[in-house]
């Protein structure tokens, strides 16, 4: 693996040597702080798909468009700063046909379902919204089934 694990050996979960729970907890806390800041500072839900649609000019609702554009720009800026400071963040992406098809399905699905991992998964579930809990259980389930099918078909992605 290119990036070494942040989790020291003694904190590693037995049976899952590749997992990085410490990086997960620390990064998750930053994500939570960002969602909290968006809620308490801006009075909005930090749902990336909705904010992206707004930034692209494809949604009539949500935060003012200028704010949406800056929020979206902030995502790579924050990732770049973290990567410069820690060397973390890079990943291995699948081949382009998978990325393109996945992008189309994600774009359409998140608009139809009013949210993605951030809006439903983090903001909605932490609010105990029934819609978001149902959406989150649904997309994790179909994600697991998709991986199962791809494995069965021998498609790596």
């Amino acid at each position: 693996m290119a990036v070494p694990l942040l989790t020291p050996d003694w904190l590693q979960i037995p049976g899952f040597p590749g997992a990085d729970p410490l990086a997960g907890v620390l990064g998750g806390a930053l994500i939570g702080l960002a969602a909290s800041f968006t809620l308490l500072g801006l009075g909005r839900v930090a749902g990336v798909s909705g904010i992206a649609a707004r930034a692209f000019g494809l949604s009539g609702e949500g935060m003012p468009r200028s704010m949406a554009v800056l929020f979206i720009l902030g995502l790579p800026v924050g990732a770049a700063i973290l990567n410069l400071l820690t060397g973390r963040g890079a990943g291995s992406f699948p081949e382009w046909p998978f990325l393109l098809v996945a992008g189309v399905v994600v774009g359409f699905g998140t608009r139809l379902g009013s949210g993605c991992t951030s809006g439903h998964g983090v903001c909605g579930v932490s609010r105990l919204s029934a819609r978001s809990i149902v959406a989150t259980v649904t997309f994790i389930f179909t994600g697991i089934v998709t991986i199962l099918i791809m494995r069965a078909l021998g498609v790596a992605g």
Partner: peptide, 14 residues
């Protein structure tokens, strides 16, 4: 929508 999103999420991991 959520079901479709999950399929896309699984295909690319993004």
């Amino acid at each position: 929508g959520a079901a479709l999103f999950g399929v896309g999420w699984g295909i690319a991991g993004v």
